[in-house]
Write a protein that binds this DNA or RNA. Structure first.
Lengths: 163, 163
DNA sequence: AACACCATTGCATAAGTATACATCATGAAT
DNA sequence: ATTCATGATGTATACTTATGCAATGGTGTT
């Protein structure tokens, strides 16, 4: 092939990898300034060395699952993949919990320093009916229960976990 | 005028009011099933007695500030850039609030991570009579109300704000 | 090497959305 | 009542986005 019109050097190597990079740059651009149209995005990408057509960007936008709203394109607000390998409330309480106190329908869990947040997060995750909500400081967790009975019941269970 | 083709009775009275009703129905439809295009929306509205053209819907969608994502149109995503200069409690709750739970005279607002402080600050600023005080953690706000009745009332209002 | 396969892309165009302009209805001011 | 301003809407069309098709380049298989 004498001609071989590969004017664009970046096209030589790997197109797939190129695509990944382009996607990354698109995300980056979205964070900086609003982008109203695919053609505007095309121009901005061109300024960064990515010369593609509107058609390609239409496909990219689908793959990135972007949304177009009144203020232009944006990352989809869909629930991001939250991956947590929580150790379980039992282990956390046993590891950090020190004491449980009750005040009417409220429970206060005294923990080792820095242990409050993990315990509160664990309690929230368990989604127990007797836990209306939690507030965690540094070494204290406030647990709000619907009523005194359930608070007492939960207190017993937590004490059992703590040991 | 012999003909007077007023086939549609609702057209006679007030067009502006008609528009309001249409907007309400659009919101309602959005909640039920995904709507992929303005023409699809047009057909569904027609089934409910609203016979308008795609052009009108394009304008409605702007006014309602809807977004179009991979799954069709949806109510505008709360985390948009600061468009209106009104960071009132309404916007803050809509942006960060997830759920409200009641425990007697206490309310617990579950928020996105880091959203508790802004909400609590907003509540304090509003200086509502049914808010005795607030305590904010990271993703939970505790609101103390004078009594159960006012707590219930406030809960309803907050739920309305959240959506 | 020759071949089959698969992903990516551009081109041309279909499909979908926004808007300039004209019309009609309503309400306020004269 | 007449005039003027405002707002909602339809029509036609400009603008924007999506996609069928074919070409290209890389990979793996024989």
């Amino acid at each position: 092939m004498p001609g071989k019109f590969s004017v664009l050097p970046w096209q030589n190597s790997d197109a797939t990898q190129m695509k990944q990079q382009r996607h990354t740059v698109i995300r980056e651009l979205l964070g900086k300034a609003p982008i109203a149209s695919q053609d505007e995005l095309r121009r901005k990408l061109a300024g960064r060395g990515f010369h593609v057509t509107q058609a390609t960007l239409s496909r990219d936008i689908h793959e990135l699952r972007l949304s177009k709203g009144p203020d232009g394109y944006s990352l989809s607000n869909g629930s991001d993949s939250e991956e947590d390998s929580l150790p379980g409330i039992r282990e956390v309480l046993q590891g950090f919990g020190l004491e449980v106190r009750q005040a009417a329908n409220l429970l206060v869990v005294v923990t080792t320093t820095g242990g409050a947040q993990p315990i509160a997060a664990g309690m929230d995750y368990e989604d127990w009916p007797e836990v209306v909500g939690t507030i965690a400081g540094d070494d204290t967790v406030l647990i709000i229960c619907p009523d005194i009975e359930q608070a007492t019941q939960l207190k017993t269970r937590i004490e059992h976990y703590i040991g």
